[in-house]
Design a protein around this nucleic acid. Structure first.
Length: 569
RNA sequence: CGGGGCGUAGCGCAGCUUGGUAGCGCGCCUGCUUUGGGAGCAGGAUGUCGGGUGUUCAAAUCACCCCGCCCCGACCA
């Protein structure tokens, strides 16, 4: 490609509405332009990178035995009513009507369509397993799109769906996708880590998120410094502490104290001169319309996902003020476990606590020196807290660390959730009709590209890894008005093209500085600089974008030198 | 949806407090010079000041309404 002919509008200045590096650089490097909130066009340079990633994904999916299909973006509401998600999905589902006033949605995902397709065509276990995937545009009407293509409303996604006859088969399908994802992100040159994710009511560890580690990531990754344990924050476990480690401190006398207008943990600590670790927080939740009191040590927070899974309920939310009044007998801010009229669940953090402070279930009062067994009774302990840096690893008792990450992929075992709702069955070898066991596997293509830039850029611009770089090489003749220079550049260009190297020839009549800046900005891995001094000595310079290293190569060896580097990568 | 901020030329911004000719830098066009890290000089083009309504002799500027965008919280690839 000739730069002079390419639609590649780079920007010297950073657009003010772009916050993170990848968004700024994608705009500046002429990869994307915004059409509306969370909706972007890819320009030639950006789309080349998208296609590179797509092709890596495609190759690895095919290698893993999945087959490519292409499903509609517009989907009839009936399908979504069958699965129950027309009502459940909420405002993120973009709903439209056609001229006959029939309801449709723009697909945010394709479980419904694929399940409908497969149930009509697969009748017997002999046709299983099957894994079908597509690379397609999705639309999710995000509450708050942000960070360019990192979280857009319209985005390209690879979504795969597996169908199996047996549990073992489903686990095998899952493992194949898990392995394929590792290969894909490795090939994209990313530093990433698969982490255990919450799998809702499916259970087990059959959900992993692939996280690219980056400080700008929106997700917290919990991982162990000593072993390979890694999970996202919602899923991260805290091990049950060993019992019998209580101090011998005597139980002190229960004491009710007047604490006017003291509600939060901070206020309680300041007022009573105690530490958050000496206080027990009592939170009232509504679990499927029933109140539950949840206790946690004052310096910890409740993980609502873990609580919801523990309660195995459909809905969970913090109780309204009127419910709190009914259950505790006092307004918000003074709840405690003593004499409360509902189920009580305690986080493991309460194990071993003595003489702690709790709400008195009476307005403007707290209780000091409260103790389990003596003053109230905890019947259930569970792992309910949000894991923090420095906590104990649930696998090896090592130290927990927390890092930031960008979720670029997700593998999930669905079980029979959709096959049951939509009646996707097959006839098994025992002559019985059974539901297919499904899995779904997604990769955000645009997000993967953005994540790569987050991870690989410097003050001058993007630094592409060779496998997804829009071009391998940029040839920079420092002066196109010098015939010798231009001729050499043109010859090298043709020779590299013939060798199958993806090369951009910067044939613009610009000053060298401008060309260097643009080459750095768009991040091409190798730059060949052709200048008068070098040519006179019979050499050209090759600059490596990543390391900044410069090599002087004799003119007759340049083409081969480059071809070898590209072939290695 | 709640809280905060912004909207003036393609991009980055000033002007608004205190109403009166719409400006600066970059980019763009023409010419000459220049040519190894975003050149210099000279000339030039470009705006329904986000939209509407109101106040006023007069509105980018004041008031009200609407729209869009960005940031912080609940969702997700």
């Amino acid at each position: 490609m000739r730069y002079s002919e390419m639609f590649l509008p780079t920007m010297k200045e950073t657009p003010s509405d772009a916050e993170i590096a990848s968004h700024q650089l994608m705009l500046r490097a002429g990869m994307i332009r915004k059409l509306a909130g969370g909706i972007y066009s890819y320009l030639p340079l950006g789309y080349r990178v998208i296609r590179k990633v797509e092709n890596i994904v495609r190759e690895e999916m095919n290698r893993a035995g999945a087959q490519e299909v292409f499903m509609p973006a517009v989907q009839p509401a009936e399908l979504w009513m069958e699965s129950g998600r027309w009502a459940m999905y909420g405002k993120e589902l973009l709903r439209v009507k056609d001229r006959h006033n029939r309801d449709y949605c723009i697909g945010p995902t394709h479980e419904e369509v694929i399940t409908a397709l497969v149930r009509d065509e697969i009748q017997t276990y002999r046709q299983l397993p099957r894994n079908l995937y597509q690379i397609q545009t999705k639309f999710r009407d995000e509450i708050r799109p942000r960070f360019g293509t990192m979280r857009s409303r319209e985005f390209g996604m690879k979504d795969a769906y597996s169908f199996d006859a047996t549990e073992q088969g489903a686990e095998e399908s899952y493992r194949k996708m898990f392995d394929a994802y590792n290969r894909i992100f490795l090939r994209c040159g990313l530093h990433f880590r698969p982490v255990e994710a919450d799998s809702g009511n499916i259970g087990g560890s059959f959900s992993h998120e692939f996280m690219v580690t980056a400080d700008s990531g929106e997700d917290a990754i919990v991982h162990c410094a000593s072993c390979s344990y890694a999970a996202n924050l919602e899923k991260a476990e805290y091990p049950r502490p060993e019992e019998g480690k209580e101090t011998d401190a005597p139980l002190l006398t229960l004491e009710k104290v007047h604490t006017p207008d003291v509600r939060t943990i901070e206020e309680v600590c300041a007022f009573l001169d105690v530490l958050p670790g000496d206080v027990v927080k009592t939170m009232i939740f509504m679990s499927d319309e029933k109140p539950v009191a949840v206790l946690v040590r004052g310096d910890e927070e409740i993980n609502e996902i873990k609580l919801k899974n523990y309660l195995a309920c459909d809905s969970l939310e913090l109780a309204m003020d009127e419910t709190i009044l009914k259950v505790t007998g006092s307004p918000r801010g003074f709840a405690g476990p003593t004499g409360i009229k509902c189920r009580i669940i305690a986080d493991y953090s309460l194990i071993g606590m003595k003489n702690f402070v709790v709400g008195a279930n009476q307005e403007d009062h707290h209780i000091k020196n409260c103790n389990n067994e003596r003053d109230f009774k905890i019947s259930e302990y569970a792992d309910l807290k949000i894991v923090r840096e420095g906590d104990i690893c649930p696998r090896c008792k090592g130290g927990i660390k927390i890092a930031r990450g960008i979720e670029v992929g997700h593998v999930f075992k669905l079980g029979v959730k959709y096959s049951k709702a939509m009646n996707a069955t097959f006839l098994d070898s025992d002559g019985k009709e059974k539901h297919m066991i499904m899995g779904c596997y997604g990769i955000g293509i645009g997000r993967t590209v953005a994540a790569c830039i987050e991870q690989s850029h410097d003050g001058d611009g993007i630094v592409w890894p060779i496998p997804i770089a829009p071009f391998h090489v940029i040839i920079t003749p420092v002066n196109v008005n010098d015939e010798k220079i231009l001729k050499f550049a043109e010859d090298l260009y043709r020779s590299l093209l013939e060798a199958g190297v993806e090369v951009l020839l910067d044939d613009r009549d610009e000053r060298a500085g401008v060309k260097f800046k643009d080459a750095d900005l768009i991040g091409i891995p190798l730059r060949v600089t052709i200048g008068p001094k070098g040519l006179a000595e019979g050499v050209v310079e090759i600059k490596f974008r990543g390391s900044g290293k410069i090599e002087r190569i004799p003119v007759e060896k340049v083409s081969v030198f480059i071809e070898e580097i590209i072939a290695e990568a």
